[in-house]
Amino acid sequence: AEIMKKTDFDKVASEYTKIGTISTTGEMSPLDAREDLIKKADEKGADVVVLTSGQTENKIHGTADIYKKK
């Protein structure tokens, strides 16, 4: 799966169907969080990951919607 910015995804959204939401939390780098989200998306058969939230304090927390091409 590839990560797309919401603004970029909005241009092609009609080509995809939302298949779920994924999240990651833990003591990790932003890059590790990104890789974890991609891994989870791949496991669910998603083609595209669109980040919906991200937070960093002591731990990273990120959520994303996942989509499959129609």
Results as ranks from 00 to 15, higher is better:
residue 55 Q to H: 11
residue 18 K to R: 09
residue 54 G to K: 08
residue 33 A to V: 09
residue 13 A to W: 07
residue 45 G to D: 05
residue 9 F to M: 03
residue 11 K to I: 08
residue 44 K to W: 14
residue 54 G to F: 15
residue 29 S to Y: 08
residue 51 L to H: 03
residue 69 K to N: 04
residue 4 M to G: 01
residue 36 D to I: 09
residue 31 L to S: 14
residue 24 T to A: 07
residue 8 D to Q: 06
residue 66 I to L: 11
residue 16 Y to H: 00
residue 39 K to W: 05
residue 48 V to R: 03
residue 55 Q to F: 15
residue 39 K to I: 05
residue 65 D to R: 03
residue 56 T to G: 13
residue 24 T to S: 06
residue 36 D to G: 05
residue 47 D to M: 04
residue 63 T to S: 08
residue 36 D to P: 03
residue 42 D to F: 12
residue 59 K to V: 12
residue 8 D to F: 05
residue 13 A to S: 11
residue 7 T to V: 13
residue 15 E to P: 01
residue 32 D to I: 06
residue 42 D to I: 15
residue 64 A to T: 01
residue 26 G to H: 13
residue 44 K to E: 07
residue 58 N to C: 12
residue 38 I to R: 09
residue 9 F to D: 00
residue 67 Y to G: 00
residue 19 I to A: 02
residue 16 Y to I: 02
residue 65 D to P: 03
residue 32 D to Q: 14
residue 29 S to A: 08
residue 19 I to M: 07
residue 55 Q to V: 12
residue 19 I to F: 04
residue 44 K to H: 11
residue 68 K to F: 04
residue 56 T to N: 11
residue 25 T to N: 13
residue 61 H to T: 13
residue 62 G to N: 12
residue 30 P to N: 12
residue 61 H to C: 14
residue 39 K to Q: 07
residue 42 D to T: 15
residue 34 R to N: 07
residue 11 K to H: 06
residue 57 E to P: 12
residue 59 K to A: 13
residue 27 E to N: 13
residue 49 V to A: 04
residue 14 S to E: 09
residue 26 G to T: 13
residue 65 D to I: 08
residue 35 E to Q: 12
residue 49 V to Q: 01
residue 59 K to S: 14
residue 1 A to W: 03
residue 30 P to L: 13
residue 11 K to V: 07
residue 12 V to D: 03
residue 69 K to P: 02
residue 61 H to I: 15
residue 50 V to G: 02
residue 53 S to N: 11
residue 42 D to Y: 12
residue 53 S to F: 15
residue 63 T to H: 09
residue 15 E to D: 10
residue 55 Q to Y: 15
residue 22 I to H: 00
residue 64 A to M: 06
residue 53 S to H: 13
residue 47 D to G: 03
residue 4 M to V: 05
residue 35 E to S: 10
residue 41 A to S: 03
residue 30 P to H: 08
residue 37 L to R: 00
residue 7 T to A: 14
residue 22 I to R: 02
residue 48 V to M: 04
residue 17 T to R: 11
residue 46 A to M: 02
residue 33 A to P: 05
residue 52 T to P: 08
residue 11 K to T: 05
residue 5 K to P: 08
residue 51 L to Y: 08
residue 53 S to V: 11
residue 20 G to C: 07
residue 11 K to D: 05
residue 14 S to W: 13
residue 17 T to Q: 06
residue 50 V to L: 04
residue 45 G to M: 06
residue 53 S to A: 10
residue 7 T to M: 09
residue 3 I to D: 00
residue 16 Y to P: 00
residue 40 K to Q: 14
residue 66 I to W: 01
residue 57 E to F: 09
residue 22 I to L: 07
residue 46 A to H: 01
residue 30 P to S: 14
residue 48 V to L: 08
residue 3 I to W: 12
residue 20 G to F: 04
residue 54 G to W: 15
residue 23 S to Y: 14
residue 37 L to F: 05
residue 52 T to K: 10
residue 10 D to S: 07
residue 11 K to P: 06
residue 65 D to F: 05
residue 22 I to G: 00
residue 61 H to D: 10
residue 49 V to F: 02
residue 49 V to I: 15
residue 52 T to L: 10
residue 35 E to M: 14
residue 68 K to M: 06
residue 28 M to A: 07
residue 50 V to S: 02
residue 40 K to V: 05
residue 18 K to I: 07
residue 68 K to C: 05
residue 10 D to L: 10
residue 18 K to W: 15
residue 52 T to V: 10
residue 50 V to Q: 00
residue 62 G to M: 15
residue 31 L to V: 10
residue 40 K to H: 05
residue 15 E to Y: 13
residue 64 A to E: 03
residue 16 Y to Q: 00
residue 7 T to C: 13
residue 58 N to K: 09
residue 19 I to Y: 02
residue 17 T to I: 14
residue 69 K to L: 07
residue 70 K to E: 04
residue 67 Y to N: 00
residue 26 G to Q: 10
residue 12 V to R: 05
residue 46 A to C: 03
residue 41 A to K: 01
residue 42 D to S: 15
residue 47 D to Y: 04
residue 35 E to C: 13
residue 64 A to R: 03
residue 48 V to S: 02
residue 41 A to D: 01
residue 24 T to K: 02
residue 53 S to G: 12
residue 27 E to R: 11
residue 47 D to W: 04
residue 9 F to P: 01
residue 36 D to C: 13
residue 67 Y to C: 02
residue 1 A to C: 12
residue 66 I to G: 02
residue 28 M to V: 07
residue 45 G to E: 04
residue 33 A to D: 03
residue 28 M to N: 07
residue 64 A to N: 02
residue 3 I to K: 01
residue 44 K to C: 15
residue 23 S to G: 06
residue 47 D to R: 04
residue 57 E to R: 07
residue 44 K to V: 11
residue 54 G to T: 12
residue 28 M to R: 07
residue 7 T to R: 09
residue 70 K to R: 09
residue 13 A to D: 02
residue 3 I to N: 01
residue 21 T to I: 07
residue 15 E to H: 11
residue 34 R to S: 06
residue 23 S to K: 10
residue 19 I to R: 01
residue 13 A to R: 13
residue 27 E to V: 12
residue 53 S to E: 11
residue 28 M to D: 06
residue 51 L to W: 09
residue 38 I to S: 03
residue 70 K to N: 09
residue 35 E to A: 15
residue 23 S to V: 10
residue 60 I to F: 14
residue 33 A to H: 06
residue 5 K to L: 14
residue 26 G to M: 12
residue 13 A to Q: 08
residue 61 H to G: 12
residue 17 T to P: 00
residue 31 L to T: 11
residue 58 N to A: 11
residue 11 K to S: 06
residue 43 E to S: 08
residue 44 K to T: 04
residue 49 V to Y: 02
residue 46 A to Q: 00
residue 25 T to A: 12
residue 13 A to M: 07
residue 11 K to Y: 05
residue 49 V to D: 01
residue 45 G to W: 04
residue 68 K to S: 04
residue 25 T to C: 15
residue 13 A to V: 06
residue 38 I to P: 00
residue 43 E to Q: 10
residue 57 E to A: 12
residue 42 D to R: 14
residue 59 K to N: 13
residue 70 K to F: 06
residue 68 K to V: 10
residue 18 K to L: 13
residue 18 K to S: 05
residue 9 F to H: 02
residue 27 E to L: 13
residue 53 S to L: 14
residue 16 Y to V: 00
residue 21 T to N: 06
residue 1 A to K: 02
residue 35 E to K: 14
residue 12 V to P: 01
residue 10 D to K: 07
residue 27 E to C: 15
residue 31 L to A: 15
residue 63 T to C: 09
residue 20 G to S: 03
residue 10 D to T: 06
residue 48 V to N: 02
residue 6 K to W: 10
residue 6 K to Y: 05
residue 41 A to Q: 01
residue 6 K to C: 07
residue 28 M to T: 05
residue 10 D to Y: 07
